[in-house]
Design a binder for these strands. Structure first.
Lengths: 122, 122
DNA sequence: CTCCTGTTTTGACATCCATCGAATCAGGAT
DNA sequence: ATCCTGATTCGATGGATGTCAAAACAGGAG
């Protein structure tokens, strides 16, 4: 049980846009978990910090500083993001490094694609 | 105050991807509200029903049936989606019709765009 | 081995949220 | 005017969630 990259979210249908065919109840429930993980400002900033880090990964030790929160709280938020399948962690010696899961992000991107629209800026 | 399309969410920066430059605290807070609105299975299905309706809009009277929930609860969820700027409502006579706000959806789509990736399927 | 540092888990607590019934508002019909 | 139906708001309640301190775990250094 020391696997840090375990995803607990079932990988349901990948790319059907929200404006597509009817969303099944279990698909909706599964997607809701992902959005719940994103529904906290701290987790959003954590994901942003990780995704924008050079090398595509960030050490937990660098993620605690930017916040006025205790280490357990940061660890809790990282766990939520991990269980949502948005990030994955790896231990290297003393430190743990997190990186985004690209498939999860691109999947979300496709979710909001609109049928007729190519790109609507502002 | 009978305006049903009032958006209470400040329209912060439109399209900077999550993997882009550092997310400011207030941007993160504002975005978190939007994701919180999406973090409920019922609201996800409501948005899906609305977005996939012929004519791009759906009557509230048609949104109550698919759920085993009371009308006040559905109304509550619609209000949350509305206040997040994801849908907008209009009263026509006895009935109220909701439609998605395209800019809100395309903005979210851009959020998850990955720097190097054009499109990663599956 | 014993420390020490980084990270996660545990347990508790305050706050928030989804849901309901009852009441209220909006608008058409009689 | 009075009714009736659709939709929202109000008030209450059980359950989920963010936060912390304390404890436990992981791994390197002395």
């Amino acid at each position: 049980m020391s696997k840090l990259q375990a995803l607990e979210v079932v990988d349901a249908g990948c790319c059907a846009p929200l404006s597509g065919p009817t969303l099944a109840e279990d698909e909706a429930a599964e997607l809701a978990k992902v959005f719940k993980a994103l529904s906290d400002p701290v987790r959003l900033r954590l994901l942003n910090l990780i995704a924008s880090s050079p090398g595509g990964e960030a050490c937990v030790c660098d993620l605690t500083g930017p916040f006025d929160l205790s280490a357990p709280t940061i660890s809790h938020h990282l766990k939520v993001l991990r269980q949502a399948g948005l990030i994955q962690g790896e231990r290297r010696g003393t430190w743990v490094y997190y990186r985004p899961v690209p498939e999860a992000l691109t999947r979300l991107s496709g979710l909001f694609a609109l049928p007729g629209l190519a790109a609507a800026s502002a």
